[in-house]
Design a protein around this nucleic acid. Structure first.
Lengths: 170, 170
DNA sequence: ATAAACTTTCAGTAATTACTGAAAGTTTAA
DNA sequence: TTAAACTTTCAGTAATTACTGAAAGTTTAT
């Protein structure tokens, strides 16, 4: 494959990965930057990302910050060079662990708080609607707790090597 | 708990469930309607949903249609009554199976197509960038395939009874 | 201190997504 | 066939989310 074709294929891949990102609640640009960095041989600076994806400085900066916040990329600096570079986690299972951990923290934990608050009230046993509410919130709580525990186990970074086997064995 | 307090609690729960929904790519209203129906003792018609959630007819109609599309709620009709009513799946594990199946279809399968298309090209082994691209797309493909298989197993409805045990045993 | 090299912020704007409500469409009954 | 009861559609609008680019901020070297 010559260089032109490869460039095209890579750009398409990045664009498509962005589209996919939006299926998950990840914004398009953030997913594209992530794809770009996953495919980059070396850590890359903001200007290079801006130019490659044709996005503004502000946009690049804030999405890079968010990716660092997720732990999906790391800031890299070199002595004698004051620019910051960014490097993506390239092991997909490690990546999965990171995402599992973050989504738990951002989505599961708040849900659990909400559910526990609701289902800990005392209800009128005579009222069918209140009974159903209690039953539903209680079983949702149990469900979310189970999910939370499962994600905890998955998210242990040291397990990233064994995780594929666990999942395959399901 | 008296009826006023309960109404308040239920409304708060529905509102919060909506907020949570947006964490997942589910829109707020759709999640709220779903919550409302999960807590409804009987199948409920469009007008009742509109009134309860203070939303327009069009909005109610399209979100109910989408929920039916996801398989999270069912249309119910009664002989001699030409209105349509909607009833939510109330078993949370069954619900989880439905969501797993749908998300696989909507998110995983397209990703897999994309990845397979990319990683099936022939690359220049001398070029480090092309090598990395091949390596990354190949391992992403493997990962997504594993995820897909796992979700397939999870999504078998008949397993909804055993699923809690599987997950807890992880 | 000054300036160069770089990063961050944020007000304004663009793009996307969700919602309304009235009109059009459909079904059933008489 | 007409009309009542209900559902669906969709053009217009509102709300939300993402992006730009210039200005302000920070760090380092001299």
């Amino acid at each position: 494959m010559d260089n032109e074709d490869f460039k095209q294929l890579k750009d398409d891949f990045i664009a498509q990965w962005g589209t996919l990102g939006s299926c998950w609640g990840i914004n398009r640009t953030m997913a594209q930057i992530h794809a770009y960095l996953m495919l980059a041989v070396e850590p890359t600076d903001t200007n290079t990302v801006m130019d490659a994806l044709k996005i503004s400085r502000g946009n690049a900066n804030s999405n890079l910050r968010d990716l660092v916040g997720w732990g999906l990329i790391k800031r890299v600096t070199y002595p004698g060079d004051r620019k910051e570079y960014f490097d993506a986690e390239k092991d997909v299972w490690a990546m999965f662990c990171i995402i599992a951990r973050e989504r738990k923290r951002r989505e599961i934990d708040p849900a659990l708080n909400l559910l526990q608050a609701s289902s800990s009230k005392s209800f009128n046993k005579r009222d069918a609607e209140q009974q159903l509410f209690l039953k539903q919130t209680a079983s949702l709580t149990e469900f979310v707790q189970t999910a939370s525990t499962a994600l905890n186990k998955i998210a242990r970074a040291e397990q990233s090597k064994v995780l594929p086997f666990i999942v395959k064995r399901l």
